[in-house]
Amino acid sequence: MSDLRIDRVETVLLDIPLRRPHRFARVGMEAQPVLYVFVRTAGGVTGVGEGVVPGGPWWGGESVETMQLIVERYVAPVLVGRRVDDIHALLRDVTDVVGANLFAKAAVEVALHDAWARCLDVPVHTLLGGLARTSIPVTWALGIESATVVIEEALGKLDAGLHHSFKLKMGAQDPAADVARICAVAEKLSGVAGVRVDINARWDRLTSLTHLPTLAEAGVEMIEQPVPGTEIETLAEINAALPIPVMADETLRTPSDALRVARLRAADILAVKTTKCGGLRASMEIAAIGAAAGIPTHGATSIESPVGTAASLHFACAAPGVTWGSELFGPLLMAEEMLVEPLHYADGELHLPEGPGLGIELDPDKIRAFRRD
Rank of each mutant, 00 (worst) to 15 (best):
M1C: 12
R5I: 08
V9S: 01
T11H: 04
I16V: 15
I16E: 10
P17D: 07
P21A: 13
R26D: 11
M29T: 14
M29A: 13
A31K: 13
V34F: 07
L35Y: 02
V37T: 06
A42E: 08
G51T: 04
V52R: 06
V52D: 09
P54V: 12
W58A: 12
W59T: 14
T66E: 12
I70M: 15
V75D: 05
A76F: 06
V78M: 03
V80S: 07
I87P: 00
D93Q: 09
A100L: 15
R118M: 00
L120M: 07
V124M: 00
L128A: 02
L128F: 01
I136R: 02
W140D: 11
S146E: 05
T148I: 10
T148L: 12
L155I: 10
G156N: 12
K169N: 10
K169L: 09
M170G: 11
G171W: 08
A177I: 11
I182P: 11
A184E: 09
A184P: 09
E187P: 10
S190L: 14
G194V: 11
V195F: 06
V197G: 12
R202N: 13
R205G: 15
L206C: 13
M222D: 15
G229R: 04
T234V: 10
I244S: 06
P245N: 04
V246W: 06
D249R: 08
P255C: 01
R265E: 14
V272E: 01
K273A: 03
G278H: 00
G279C: 03
A291Y: 03
A316H: 02
A316M: 11
C317V: 03
A319P: 02
G321N: 02
V322H: 01
T323W: 00
W324R: 12
E337K: 12
L343W: 02
G348E: 02
G357Q: 00
I360T: 04
A369N: 13
F370V: 14
